[in-house]
């Protein structure tokens, strides 16, 4: 009985081949448009060479920071932290002192795995290296946690304190002290390395022009 209900008096898409071509066209077009389109536009983006400073920006992260980035990925830090400052007028990113300027595509060209993040349960970390001054600041934050962040005590280890206490120790009880493990050290190096370079002339000029144009429209 079911079959009669199903097929009774209804037009059907008969051509299996056309259906097939359509299905692949759908995914192919969106893939070509978004993935290849972005790559065509941004794939050739080069670092900006600053002649005054004789350096190219963004700079490549030092090796210890690259290792720290792996710890950042392993722990899933991106579940709660973003790494992208939004433009002025869209959210309070710059009022919260997360950066002097918005993040540009150029900032990410050296990153093997871009960690923009989807959630801000904690602050944006694009320029956290300019807010936290020393590894010690990072260790204290990681060891004690905050009201919104758990303590990552497993990144630290307890060992007998020597006569001269370790400068890295985050705590001490009797003759034992708590020191960061190598994972905590590379993670701290990574976080402290996070700091966007000054504005690039190309993006700065484009933004200025866009702002001028907008003003013109209002008049």
């Amino acid at each position: 009985m079911g079959k009669h209900i199903r097929l009774g008096g209804i037009r059907v898409m008969k051509n299996g081949l056309l259906l097939f071509i359509g299905i692949f066209a759908a995914i192919g077009l969106s893939w070509a448009g978004l993935a290849l389109g972005t790559n065509a536009q941004l794939g050739g983006l080069a670092p900006y060479y600053d002649q005054l400073e004789n350096r190219a920006f963004p700079e490549r992260a030092p090796g210890i920071a690259s290792r720290g980035k792996l710890v950042y990925e392993d722990l899933g830090c991106a579940s709660c932290h973003t790494q992208a400052v939004r433009r002025p007028g869209f959210g309070s990113d710059q009022d919260r002192k997360w950066g002097d300027r918005q993040s540009y595509a150029r900032d990410y060209i050296h990153q093997e795995r871009v960690q923009l993040g989807l959630s801000r349960i904690g602050p944006d970390l694009t320029n956290v290296g300019s807010r936290l001054k020393s590894p010690d600041d990072v260790f204290k934050l990681l060891y004690h946690g905050t009201a919104a962040m758990p303590a990552y005590a497993f990144l630290f280890e307890e060992r007998p304190a020597l006569a001269q206490p370790s400068p890295k120790a985050v705590g001490r009880s009797g003759d034992r002290e708590i020191v960061p493990t190598p994972r905590a050290e590379v993670l701290a190096a990574y976080l402290l390395s996070l700091n966007s370079p000054a504005d690039y002339p190309v993006e700065k000029a484009e933004n200025t022009m866009a702002a001028v144009k907008k003003e013109g429209e209002h008049k």
Binding site: I27, L34, A35, L42, G43, L45, A105, I109, R113, L116
Partner: peptide, 18 residues
């Protein structure tokens, strides 16, 4: 073979939605 820079974010968004 990760694409360059934020192209990854675009591909990731495309994938997650699809």
């Amino acid at each position: 073979a990760p694409v360059r820079g934020v192209g990854q974010a675009v591909v990731a968004a495309w994938f997650a939605q699809n």
